[in-house]
């Protein structure tokens, strides 16, 4: 029970950290404008390229729109454990959390969940706004399926993806635990990799072998595929669930890897004496 209490308290802290604005509407707009612009930029790249090649297809635009939006979602919250540690070392919050009875895992879980909720909100708004903006600017009809079932399936996929995103977050934060530099920059590096390897903007089959094979089995790729099956016209439930199954399996494996790496890093950080050391 007390673990749950720690997680809930950490969700609250994370939520305040993300939305501690004098004007909450302004704060939310500031958080949404970036992902929205990212989605429109990716779609514009597609529009410019495909128009010149006379190969524009609304379903491909939908593919990119969904991928770009969900990519920003995953990138936004998977690096939160690293942020919580790096920032917590500065403010001395992290060492205090670390020595609490359940140590830092409930805290990192709570912070990640808070960020998941907030970035889910921003991604939904980005998706809706970019849908209307792009339909109008590109003068096209984007083939989305928006029904209670499709939206539920999208949310379910997002929930399943927490496993993989938190696993990745733990892997990154394992480094942040004993790092003395670059821990702030590493997540953006990984976010860049994720853009290439998660089928966010283009099918991973376009990547050379064996890179494409690795990308093909990443849980993030399966998550993108499941989400597209849910939201784009022509998707089917059978494919959706097979992708969800693979995303779950991959997520569990990544989470286990993240957990092991984090435990190893905890011991190493204690040996090195850097749990309570501020980094540059």
């Amino acid at each position: 029970m007390s673990v749950l209490r720690s997680i809930v308290a950490s969700v609250r802290v994370g939520w305040y950290r993300e939305f501690n604005w004098t004007n909450p509407l302004l704060g939310f707009s500031m958080r949404t404008v970036g992902p929205l612009a990212g989605v429109i930029a990716a779609s514009s790249v597609y529009f410019v390229g495909s128009s010149a090649a006379r190969s524009f297809s609304p379903s491909q635009l939908a593919f990119i729109l969904i991928g770009a939006a969900l990519y920003t979602h995953v990138a936004a919250y998977s690096w939160v454990p690293t942020l919580a540690i790096a920032e917590g070392k500065w403010t001395y919050v992290f060492p205090q959390v670390f020595i609490s009875p359940h140590s830092s895992l409930p805290y990192l879980t709570g912070r990640t969940l808070a960020s998941f909720f907030s970035s889910t909100l921003t991604v939904i708004v980005s998706l809706v706004l970019s849908f209307f903006i792009l339909s109008s600017v590109f003068n096209t009809s984007i083939p989305f399926t928006v029904t209670p079932l499709s939206v539920t399936l999208l949310f379910f996929a997002m929930l399943v993806n927490i496993l993989a995103a938190f696993g990745l977050g733990l892997l990154l934060s394992a480094y942040a635990l004993f790092a003395t530099k670059f821990e702030w920059a590493l997540p953006t590096y990984v976010a860049g990799l994720l853009m290439v390897f998660s089928e966010a903007l283009f099918p991973v089959s376009f990547l050379p072998h064996p890179v494409s094979d690795v990308a093909n089995v990443l849980p993030f790729t399966e998550f993108m595929r499941a989400s597209r099956q849910a939201m784009i016209q022509g998707g089917d439930v059978y494919s959706y669930f097979s992708y969800i199954g693979l995303a779950t399996l991959g997520g569990v494996i990544l989470l286990a890897m993240g957990f092991l790496a984090f435990r190893y890093a905890e011991n190493r950080a204690r040996r090195l004496g850097v749990i309570d050391k501020k980094t540059a």
Partner: peptide, 12 residues
């Protein structure tokens, strides 16, 4: 790299 791939995959 990703945007380059988008240009190559879908267009020019």
């Amino acid at each position: 790299f990703s945007f380059t791939m988008v240009y190559r995959a879908y267009g020019l």
